[in-house]
Amino acid sequence: MEKKKDIKLEILNINHSKYTTRLSPKYKNREPYKSPDRSKLLSFIPGTVVEIMVKEGDKVKKGDEVLVLEAMKMKNRIKSPVSGLVKYIDINVNDKVPKGKLLIEFNPQQ
């Protein structure tokens, strides 16, 4: 599976010390951390959009149901994460969406 010769050494910084070493694929492919953006509603599970209850420009309150995402035979009623306006709807009814896909973007308002 691996040959001793094809060792590619890189630098790993730990507590200000720079270590020459091989970096694991898991480490190299790790996702950089992004703080959650509550104005963007993402799919929490892969599934099918079966109903969208809002239109662009609609005013919503935090906790209002905005769409139904069916996954694992369960119809999940998805609520708005913020109060504000529906800025952009990135899906249509019957769309199959992967996990983490943008569904609706909001314009949060107090």
């Binding site: 790993l12 730990i14 270590y19 070493t21 091989r22 970096l23 694991s24 480490y27």
Partner: peptide, 8 residues
């Protein structure tokens, strides 16, 4: 193993 991920 210092050869891999500095052995962390």
């Amino acid at each position: 193993q210092p050869l891999e991920m500095a052995g962390v």
